[in-house]
Nucleic acid binder design. Structure first.
Lengths: 248, 248
DNA sequence: CGTGTTTATGCGTGTTTATGCAATTAAATA
DNA sequence: TATTTAATTGCATAAACACGCATAAACACG
């Protein structure tokens, strides 16, 4: 196996599991510890992962919902501002949860008049600060991890909605594999959300580009807008340009 | 599990609960006390938390006493502690919103195992911090004033529930007029909540005693427990003593 | 083709890190 | 004050790591 292939393999593991153990890689790749260490070292130098004693972690691995520690907050603010331009008065908007969406809500103009459906209590509370926004919280089981409601009841309620725009964060996006996710329930949820909206915008920080996870949500073509913190012309977005998808 | 992951886990617990016990971490992470102590020590050196005998506290915990702006917080904590004694493992509990309820949720013991239905997003988020609590958020229109969901959809969903205990805050209570409220929708909501529970506890700071408002929710007899910050024998509670109502 | 150079890899050895155990000391609690 | 509970300290060990060296394959070039 060539070095490059090993590196790719390692990065895939990292993107998949957010972590990897040196010892596991030794077994899986059937090379010496030294080789793995050198590989990891090189990947660190390329800024692709984060090395720790015993293995390595994904760079984006961070999972707190605390404001001050929101990962890549600057990028998220840029994304939020771009996405806000999609929200027009009178619209019915459906949103997911996550820090990017929350940032978007905080940046909304004071006087925007719209109806928001959301599965995120935190987003609902934030939306309630706007006088001209009507907020409908979609209820159901509440997920401790992702801080949104999920499960059958949510899906059922979503099926009764037709929103103008769906705003959702993303775990991973890939030119061929489209939107993917790791958890079954969240996967189902996202499908239902997309089905409940005429248009959809995926908010995505650039480091989640070109990653694909186990479960497929939808192909790229099902998404209307892709919003990243990058300039429209950025080369990292090349693979996503198509007639269907608008890149902001 | 890698050390870094443990540290992240601990920080998540801290950010979530504002506190963490050494012994809990030993169990949750399945490592020795020594390891946890060393972890905490290192996190202290990084300035990420605040170590105390028996565990650690969030750094922001001390500075952020903006919680203290909650009106009559001391009384509400007393009420919360009394009411918690009503919550037993295995119960299905239905809660409203409001600062008193929120305080109650924050004071719950770490390991309580129960199912909570709630109409308050903030309560849901707070409940989600407990590993053994299942949280179901009842969705619907979101009220900007009272920060709870309301309206027909909520009533419908409530009609499908039978909880063991309903915990609700109160606007006004009166020996003869019972529970009363000012807003039609909230009134309907409270009726539906009471109907959805076998027993009910009304949390009420003493200044709301002996007041009656325009709309009647229910007579005193429909309530199982009245929880105030006063001693059980306090004279202000004289008018409420009856065979039906238990005063805590 | 031959020779020197670079690259990738593995091995050995000494070092560092992570972790648990035991004995002692300090702190909280009854 | 006595007793439980947590914290500290030093030690032991195994895993992970760094560094130098050796080897062989791949490459470069006259």
């Amino acid at each position: 196996m060539l070095k490059k292939e090993r590196h790719d393999f390692i990065m895939r593991q990292i993107n998949l599991h957010n972590r990897v153990l040196t010892s596991d890689l030794v077994q899986l790749l059937n090379v010496s510890e030294d080789t793995i260490r050198r590989d990891l070292q090189e990947l660190v130098e390329e800024g692709l992962l984060f090395k720790v004693h015993g293995g390595a972690l994904s760079k984006s691995y961070h999972s707190s919902f605390d404001d001050s520690t929101v990962y890549a907050r600057d990028s998220k603010i840029i994304i939020a501002k771009k996405a806000i331009s999609l929200v027009k008065d009178g619209m019915v908007v459906l949103t997911g949860g996550g820090t990017t969406i929350l940032e978007l809500v905080k940046q909304l103009p004071q006087n925007v008049a719209a109806t928001f459906f959301t599965i995120s209590p935190l987003v609902a509370v934030e939306l309630a600060k706007y006088n001209n926004i009507e907020v409908i919280l979609i209820g159901g089981l509440f997920s401790k991890n992702s801080q949104v409601t999920y499960g059958g009841q949510v899906i059922t309620q979503l099926s009764e909605i037709k929103a103008d725009l769906c705003l959702m964060g993303t775990s991973a996006i890939h030119p061929e594999d489209g939107l993917t996710d790791t958890y079954w329930e969240i996967n189902q949820l996202k499908k239902a959300m997309l089905a409940a909206s005429k248009k959809s915008a995926v908010l995505c920080i650039s480091e989640k580009l070109d990653i694909s996870l186990r479960l497929k949500v939808c192909p790229i073509e099902s998404i209307t807008y892709l919003v990243t913190e990058l300039d429209q012309g950025h080369e990292a977005l090349a693979g996503y340009r198509s007639k269907e998808l608008n890149i902001l």
